[in-house]
Amino acid sequence: MTRSEIIVDLNADLGEGVGDDEAMIGVVTSANVACGFHAGDPHELLATCRAAVAAGVRIGAQVSYPDREGFGRRFMDIEPTRLTADIIYQIGALQAIARSVGADVEYVKPHGALYNSIVAHERQADAVIDAIVELGTELPLMGLPGSLSLRRAERRGIRVIAEAFADRGYRPDGTLVPRSERGAVLTDTEEIARRVVAMVERHEIRAVDGTVMRMEAESVCLHGDTPGAVEHARAVRSALAAAGIGLAAR
């Protein structure tokens, strides 16, 4: 495949009430819109969906644990049927808001601790997948490459979107370094841009211990709530364009 044939999606978490959503929505091709359980309120989500439509950006449901106090970054041992109901509720609410501005929710991306939990937690992974199945399997699930959740989703007929993170550190096993540990978040703009081009062109990423890993990803996440986020995002987009790599929701 030549550079001109490479296409990648750029996504960011929006509607959370943190960061510069207006700037980020001008960079990304997909918006992971908060659904109110970890952040956001109906007015904010409506404004975010309206802005996404105006920018031609795809809307995804950023579902999470009911954890506003912890910003959805704390594991919660929720009974699976209750978690399934929570996910259905969140997707349904955002779908109604999106449709009110002429759009649809086009994928599901778990947030924070829920995202990390379903990499290996069978019952919670199945709970999220059950919610998508009960709503109709046309909604793809975005998640970590090789994760339990993506494997089980595919087996149940759900399309998956493998995702890499521009500014997060990786362990040698392909999982993310916990935010409580050193190396969890990258802050050097040039380094972030270089590693994204490398992962998109060569499907490689370097773990915190120096291990070079294979990384197949259709979408790259640009966090909007970290210091320098907009600068990082713009640098990534510019670096991809300079490398001849196209941008589009996939």
Rank of each mutant, 00 (worst) to 15 (best):
R194T: 14
G143V: 05
R195H: 07
A217D: 02
D173A: 12
G169Q: 06
E201W: 07
T189P: 03
I205D: 01
E122F: 15
T189C: 14
E138M: 14
L135G: 00
V200F: 02
S147I: 06
E122I: 11
E163C: 15
T137W: 00
E134L: 11
A166E: 08
V197I: 13
P172L: 07
G169H: 06
V200I: 11
R206Q: 11
A127C: 10
E218W: 13
L141V: 06
H121V: 13
L144C: 10
P140T: 12
L148N: 01
R214L: 14
V177L: 09
G183A: 04
A153H: 06
I158N: 01
V133T: 15
I192N: 01
R194A: 13
D209S: 05
D167A: 06
I132C: 04
P172S: 13
G143C: 11
I132D: 02
E216S: 11
V133R: 13
A153S: 12
R151F: 11
M199L: 15
L139Y: 02
D167F: 10
L144K: 02
R206M: 14
A184I: 14
E154P: 00
Q124W: 05
R152Q: 13
V128G: 03
I132N: 02
D130F: 01
E163V: 06
A153M: 09
E134N: 05
P178R: 08
R179G: 07
V200A: 06
L144N: 04
A207P: 05
L150W: 08
R206L: 00
G169S: 11
H121E: 12
I192Q: 01
T187F: 01
V208K: 00
I158V: 11
A166N: 10
I161L: 15
P172M: 05
A127H: 09
T189M: 07
A217W: 02
D130K: 02
L176Q: 14
M213W: 00
D126F: 04
A127Y: 04
A207Q: 04
E201Y: 05
D126S: 12
L141M: 06
E181Y: 06
G174A: 09
G169C: 08
E218L: 08
R155L: 14
E122Y: 12
M199W: 06
E138F: 11
E163N: 12
E216A: 09
L148V: 09
M199N: 02
G146R: 04
S219A: 09
L139D: 00
G169A: 09
D188L: 04
V208A: 03
A131I: 11
H121I: 10
V185L: 15
I161P: 07
E216H: 10
V212M: 07
L148M: 13
L141P: 08
P172I: 10
L144W: 10
E163G: 12
I161V: 15
P178M: 10
